[in-house]
Computed example of a mutant assay.
Amino acid sequence: MIYLFIFLVILCVVITLFLNLNPVFGGTPSKEQSETYQTFNNYVNGKFANQVPTSMAMSFSDNFSMMKESISGGVNRTPASQIPVSKIDWNKINSKEDSLTWLGHSAFLLSIDNKKILVDPMLGPIASPVSFAGSKRYTGDLLPIINSLPPIDAVLITHDHYDHLDYPSIRKLKDKVSHFIVPLGVSNHLIRWGVPKEKITELNWWDETELQGLTVVLTPSKHFSGRGLFNRNSTLWGGWVILGKNIRFFTSGDGGYDAHFKEIGKKYGPFDITLIEGGQYDRRWSWVHMTPEEAVQAHLNVNGKNMMLIHWGAFTLAYHSWTEPIERALKAAKEKEVNLIAPEMGETVQLDSDLHIPIFSPWWGFLA
């Protein structure tokens, strides 16, 4: 018995040291930050909270069924072969034209008013704090793309989960980026990774900031945060509104469907294009991720004109087939008369001219 006790103590010490010393887990809000957060309506009992009470507890049967599905696998949960990335047209990206380049999952490069903005630039090979466990990227490592990127005016982060905020990507990007705009608390991760504090702006929900003539707004979402075992909801999460001279843009960030989308639409809509998550859903966590049908409805609620589905095509984080999200979204969009675009990863879409190209041959159909 004494040996078991000693083993458990040593194990706890090792885990604690690993969590505290490994930089991938990021930083923690200071005492002063936490005291400031307590003045906000969305900070309750030392944690950030959703606009509506959101329980993330799952029943024993749900947990058991998830374990069972994890072991048994599923049909077409990953592509049959590695997904190729479309040859990137750097001339389009470097031009002054408004454009959008999807880099898989929720990562994309946006050019509005000739300002280059990266959102959730998770370009690393695995969505995990460790290399030996976690979901591997379908395309392989995209970190080399960073070498060819133009200077980035801003990086926007929706929240601190590993499939959105990636340590290797930020470390490689930080010297190419003029500024980082993040939800409350996320600055502590970036500072630990070598980003100067003066290059970071933190926002609460509905806060606005100016970026070289653009208006950038952090909007609510119904989700959660945390990178370690003991820091859940210590940082905020959300979506982003970006308003330019000709383009009004919205991306949802991660989150379940709720009334906040109509509120966003009333305050900042209509939007020329929306990027809405609808790719890693399950009835057992319906409160924090949308189905494709809910994503299409969220697009309508924010008063969007054109839509793109995100949070799919790069990682397997749920139990449906990897192509199901876009297939269901296309069906729902057709029923609701929504123009849904589905470019290849790496393809640059010009926002003034390429938004009504019909999908004749879905690229994912050749890889399923």
Rank of each mutant, 00 (worst) to 15 (best):
K92P: 01
F64G: 00
D141C: 12
I71R: 12
D163F: 11
H159C: 08
N76Q: 08
H161L: 12
K174P: 01
F132M: 14
E69D: 06
S72Q: 13
S99Q: 12
V44E: 14
I170R: 14
S61P: 00
P168W: 12
M66F: 00
E69H: 02
G140A: 08
V44H: 15
N50G: 05
D113R: 09
N147I: 05
H105V: 07
N42P: 04
S135C: 07
L156G: 01
K115I: 11
T101H: 13
L103K: 11
L103S: 08
D160G: 07
K136E: 13
S86Y: 09
D141H: 11
Q82F: 05
Y138N: 08
L184T: 06
Y162D: 08
V44L: 14
L143S: 14
S81Q: 14
S55W: 01
I146W: 04
P84T: 08
S65P: 00
K174S: 13
G104M: 02
V130D: 09
E69G: 00
Q82A: 14
A57S: 12
H161Y: 03
S135H: 05
L110V: 11
Q82W: 04
E97V: 08
S99P: 07
G124A: 07
I181R: 05
V130H: 08
L173T: 03
S99T: 11
H105S: 12
G46K: 15
P151Q: 11
S72P: 00
M58L: 11
